[in-house]
Design a protein around this nucleic acid. Structure first.
Length: 200
DNA sequence: CCAATGATCTTC
DNA sequence: AAGATCATTGGA
């Protein structure tokens, strides 16, 4: 079952924590692919200097973050990658959770085809925010789509036990001053699909 | 370490 | 209108 809309209206760090273990599924024209969420980062609105909505900045790119929770905020970065966020909180509270890694569950052959000819183990297919969007066939056309229904959904699954959850600082936000030090990256310990900087 | 590659944002 | 930046990735 897809998660209900109310799930996404909770405080953003709560949503981030509870998203670990849930399933991100994309039913595209060329097939279905899905994975279990194992790494996320919370971005907390106007006051968070690492967020696209810092200081209330509102533009065509981040407009989706100002809408109600439960929708996908997908943006294009570095001229070649897409990243998908889960928008949280009610309308006009511009917060979101970036999905950084998935453990592949379904459609591994399709993921492999989308990722290209480079040899890759299963757990590398959705490692990193750009990589997982490519493996699931997610791009800017998916920006603003609901995650509670339709062909891009987050499905309920058992929560990850607290003893397996680690918190660290967020990746790639060194420019954000004091907010760069906030432990708003959550990940599942011992999971090989987790991106970049590892954790004991 | 650094190049890729283009939309977005800042500044003129 | 031009220049810098970027919630990244993969290869030297």
């Amino acid at each position: 079952m897809p998660l209900p809309g109310a799930f996404f209206l909770q405080p953003t760090l709560t949503v981030a924590r509870r998203l670990l273990g849930k399933i991100l599924e994309h039913r595209a024209a060329d097939g279905v692919a899905a994975g279990c969420i194992v790494e996320v980062e919370a971005y907390r609105g106007p006051g968070d200097q690492a967020a696209h909505t810092r200081d209330g900045h509102r533009s065509a790119r981040n407009e989706t973050m100002f809408g109600p929770g439960g929708h996908a905020y997908v943006y294009f970065i570095y001229g070649m990658h897409h990243c998908i966020n889960v928008v949280t909180r009610p309308r006009d509270v511009p917060e979101a959770v970036l999905i950084r890694a998935l453990e592949p569950i379904r459609g591994l052959d399709l993921m492999r085809a989308r990722r290209g000819p480079r040899p890759m183990t299963d757990w590398q297919l959705c490692r990193g925010p750009g990589s997982l969007c490519r493996a699931l066939g997610i791009d800017r056309r998916d920006d603003g789509r609901p995650l509670t229904r339709g062909t891009l959904r987050i499905l309920d699954a058992p929560p990850v036990p607290s003893r397996l959850v680690r918190r660290t600082t967020r990746v790639g936000v060194a420019y954000a001053g004091a907010d760069a030090a906030r432990p708003w990256r959550l990940l599942v310990a011992g999971c090989r699909a987790v991106s970049g900087r590892r954790v004991p």
